[in-house]
Structures are given as structure tokens and as C-alpha cells.
């Protein structure tokens, strides 16, 4: 009995070692979205191009990407070309111009070409908060039922897209 007690610290330590091992290489920055499995929250936002007020019903009925971007965000510039490429492949993308200036955003799209089916302005970042966005760029995948199935924080590129495109259905 007493002998066994002396090995207790070792046993606890081994358990701890296993936990630490499993956690190695995991990305501590990765944060799953709290909205996975939920529909896109209600909104009324103004379109970037036409100053029209739109809500839920204007979103695509097919599966699509919802991309938060802004002209002040350098990483958005990085991923823009790839978004154009995706749009050319026929992936529907809805853009949310996040806490941005309308003029600058319009200019940006006319220079870099527009990958978005629809661009809505979230000037105050209210919709961003409702979506649990912490910055830009962030890309959500919404399925055909209008449910959010995936969220990616950071620049979209081919490596990432190959991994997550299965969600788009």
C-alpha cells in the first residue's frame, strides 16, 4: 500500500506528459466560431455600390462564402487575388466591408476587380460583432440551408481552400 503511494507522483506526471504532448503543434491562436451550426444572424445593411438597404432575404440561396474585408487591412490585400480566382471558378462570395470608408472601398474594388456577388457595408462593425468577428479578414462558409458551417480567420489561399472547400455544399 505505502509503496504504491510513492509512485503516485510519477503516475500523475505521466498523465500530464500525455496532455502536453497532444497539445504540441496545436495552434493556440485557433478559435472555433460560436456560430457554427447556427443561421446567419438578422441584419439590415446598406450595399456598398448602390446604397440600397438589404436584409437576410438578399443572401444567396446556394452555399456561399461570407468574407469580411476592409481597405485598412493588409492581409485582405494579400488574399484579394485569390478571392478573385475563386469567384472566377464560380464560388459565390458575399463581401462585408468591415468598419471601412465607402469611397475607399469602392475605389479598391474598381482597381482590384470585384470578386463579390454582393457587398454590404458594416460601417460600425455591429454585424461583425453579431458574427463573432474579431478582425479582418475572416471567411465564413454558409451551406445551402443558410447555416454557418465553418469560419476561417486570416488570408484565404489555395492551401486553406483545398482543406475547407468540402464544407461548401
Amino acid at each position: 500500500m505505502r509503496k504504491w503511494v510513492l509512485f503516485l507522483p510519477l503516475i500523475v506526471f505521466i498523465g500530464l506528459g500525455i496532455v502536453l504532448y497532444k497539445q504540441l503543434g496545436a495552434n493556440p491562436e485557433y478559435m472555433p466560431s460560436a456560430l457554427i451550426g447556427k443561421p446567419v444572424p438578422d441584419f439590415t445593411l446598406v450595399t456598398l455600390q448602390a446604397d440600397k438597404v438589404l436584409d437576410q432575404s438578399s443572401l444567396p440561396k446556394s452555399a456561399y462564402l461570407l468574407n469580411f474585408w476592409a481597405t485598412w487591412c493588409p492581409t485582405c490585400e494579400e488574399e484579394h487575388a485569390y478571392l478573385n480566382q475563386l469567384a472566377n471558378q464560380g464560388v459565390p462570395i458575399v463581401g462585408i466591408d468591415y468598419k471601412d470608408d465607402q469611397k475607399k472601398a469602392q475605389q479598391w474594388l474598381s482597381i482590384k476587380s470585384n470578386p463579390y456577388q454582393l457587398v454590404l457595408m458594416d460601417e460600425l462593425g455591429k454585424f461583425g460583432v453579431d458574427m463573432g468577428v474579431t478582425g479582418a479578414p475572416e471567411t465564413f462558409i454558409v451551406n445551402t440551408k443558410g447555416i454557418i458551417v465553418y469560419r476561417y480567420q486570416g488570408a484565404m489561399d489555395d492551401v486553406v481552400w483545398q482543406k475547407i472547400k468540402g464544407y461548401l455544399q
Binding site: M31, A34, L35, G132, T134
Partner: peptide, 8 residues
């Protein structure tokens, strides 16, 4: 806050 950003 939790509904939007999770228990985190």
C-alpha cells in the same frame, strides 16, 4: 458575448 464569441 458568449453567443457570439463562445465560452472562450
Amino acid at each position: 458575448m458568449v453567443a457570439r464569441y463562445g465560452n472562450f
